[in-house]
Design a binder for these strands. Structure first.
Lengths: 392, 392
DNA sequence: CTTGTCTCGGTAAGCGCTTACCCGACTATG
DNA sequence: CATAGTCGGGTAAGCGCTTACCGAGACAAG
């Protein structure tokens, strides 16, 4: 059937030896020209470069990594909700439910990863991405394997339990996202306190809402705790009723938000004037569920999110939320990780001669906890007028 | 400042030599136990495993790759729209425009990548992701570098020009997405003809629309051509007016769709009853622009998309589109690539003994062009009644 | 002319694994 | 009892790079 199956035959990529032979020099010279070391003579340089161009030589990553002890790859690991069924062939006809489909939990994570990737490219690094599923029984092994293919790791929220994290971070540089810095790991996060505080004040002062609920994310997430606290404090200081508790427990996913509301509605519970969600995903589920029960947002109940993921502005009503510089979060995490990697590799050198103490210091001082600013984005779901919605 | 800067000190991960020493065996035995070769004695096995556990040994990826000639990493490259400003510090206040922000071009690509990653994990592979920006002047070099860190490459639409692709694919297995198979590359895509045909027939027969425009994607994209043709043929055979031309040229992004409509509207051009967009992104921009001019969708103009990305159902009105099994597209691409990688590595062996011709055949026969089924998803934007929109 | 210094190539020793090959110990066979 | 065959462990040769080290030539100074 195939025209020429033989044509699929691959030829081995050229090695540095091939280049050396063609250029008539030793492999050391090739390496030196390519890496700009030791200032080779112009003629040598020309011959090597010509040979490289002729053969289309690009050095093998593994060999380079092994020899130079630098892979120029950073790993990023996130938590994934299981998939499976649809891939196994069944066409899951029930998947039409808007909140059952959690594909969009992609959003936040993926935008961060994009930020990491862009920053990495600037430094000639590549990104190795991996996910662990929620069960995560073998998460540790999987992360370890990835670690040995990288120079350092960036871990999204709740990928590893603290003990495992500590163990891992003893062997390889680790930066966490939306976690907390430890003795051996750095962390990058958005400014939950300030952003959520601003949002809460807006709801209380500008809209005059007297009852506010917080629909939580994962209970053990530092982000969740900080956001909840910020709302609680603003409510308390303004004498506004703060609603929370086990019924208001979500999971950062649209389905979690929808489910909480559905349960509340099912038992005919009283609902507050405003629902502050732990993140945009949750708000999305909440708005969907409220809409399908005919409850008007923001007329009857105001809803807000956190993150400002791209879909937020395409919802009806457009979602009021707190913007995090999502892509910057990723880029910052990479920059931090890279400085840790650099420190680590210097560490081996400079055996006794402690002269560069200053430069050394500079590296060590790389902050272990970086907090990026956030800000309120007022759109419609909080009750702000349709300022620019321009419907006819 | 730092409590204990010294504690950041990393210890080198253990090597196979450390394991061998602790277990009191040779490194060969360690390797054999770990890789299950040559059936080591039970006692040996136990000692090695104990040492591995004690030290927390995980083999170094680079060394393993170099020696085994298998990296267990596949690369995936996609095209990225530039970012830049916001990361450089400026807070780009004008970014509120819903269609200017192209973050969501993430969606389709990222879902595919997710599919690749999941499939890869099953085989113990990891994903190396990289992007090239639209200018793509050094795209070739970047892709080459990635290629040498991987066993094979999956390329999204329009990453490399055909000549470069051919050159690359001679050295490393390559699978393209939404492209066309060549002598040295395989390709995976959705069934554009069937899905778009079904959609067009729905608009024509079920809704009775008499004028239909096709808002195109990139002119040189095979997907775009196939989709356009499908619509054109259905229109022709039904005697329906098919509108197209340079004014109906988009770019697969929301901004492209919005801009086309804006221009059309600006010059007070006549608009058809239905606009079939090359993909969901484009439809999103079109709907946004129509809405801001007070044109009712689907009342005055019906709009449809292609892909069924997650946001599609959160739009108002919900977007009628053609569903591609996006995640499966990625998973299939990986499976295909892996079979190519396997073939390639077998190639070196079996020098003369051509006995296994059948098995060989089986591999060679791995399809070079895989087409996954698509299907119409009727929602609201085509004019179908709000069947399950369940307002109170 | 000798000697010291500097430049720039080549030689070879790894980097941490996998695996071909070898060898001793044991078992089955004549 | 001698011999072939099997089993399992050790030794060492790479995999394709980087780089420490050496040595040859050019040049300046003594």
């Amino acid at each position: 059937m195939n025209g020429a199956p033989a044509s699929t035959t691959q030829q081995q990529p050229p090695t540095i030896y091939d280049v050396a032979r063609v250029a008539g020099v030793s492999i050391a010279s090739v390496s030196r020209v390519l890496n700009g070391h030791r200032n080779p003579r112009q003629e040598t340089r020309d011959r090597v470069l010509a040979a490289v161009a002729e053969l289309g030589f690009v050095p093998d990553g593994a060999a380079r990594a092994l020899s130079a002890r630098l892979k120029e790859v950073v790993g990023v690991v996130f938590r994934r909700v299981p998939w499976g069924e649809s891939h196994e062939g069944a066409d899951g006809a029930g998947a039409e439910d808007a909140v059952a489909e959690e594909d969009e939990s992609l959003q936040f994570t993926d935008v961060i990863n994009r930020g990491i990737e862009v920053a990495a490219q600037r430094r000639g690094y590549n990104l190795l991405v991996g996910s662990v599923d929620v069960e995560g029984h073998d998460a540790h092994r999987r992360v370890m394997t990835m670690a040995r293919k990288c120079d350092g790791l960036i871990l999204h929220d709740r990928v590893l339990e603290p003990g495992r994290l500590a163990q891992l971070s003893r062997q390889v540089p680790v930066v966490t996202l939306a976690g907390v810095a430890t003795a051996t790991t750095a962390n990058v996060r958005g400014d939950n306190e300030s952003g959520m505080g601003e949002l809460a004040r807006h709801l209380i002062r500008d809209h005059g809402y007297l009852t506010i609920a917080y629909l939580a994310g994962h209970a053990d997430s530092p982000d969740n705790l900080a956001r909840r606290l910020a709302v609680a404090e603003e409510a308390a200081s303004a004498g506004v009723m703060f609603v929370h508790g086990p019924q208001w427990q979500g999971n950062y996913l649209a389905s979690g938000g929808a489910k909480a509301i559905r349960n509340l509605l099912a038992e005919k519970a009283w609902l507050p004037r405003a629902i502050v969600c732990a993140n945009d995903q949750t708000a999305l589920g909440v708005m969907y569920e409220l809409a399908s029960h005919g409850i008007d947002v923001p007329g009857q109940i105001a809803v807000t999110g956190f993150d400002d993921i791209p879909v937020a502005r395409h919802l009806r009503p457009q979602l009021t939320t707190v913007r995090q510089p999502i892509q910057d979060l990723g880029a910052t995490a990479f920059d931090l990780l890279r400085s840790m990697i650099a420190t680590r590799s210097e560490q081996g050198n400079e055996p006794a001669q402690r002269e560069h103490e200053e430069a050394q210091r500079e590296h060590e001082e790389a902050q272990r906890e970086v907090v990026l600013p956030t800000r309120l984005v007022r759109r419609e779901s909080c009750g702000c007028g349709a300022a620019k919605a321009g419907g006819s």
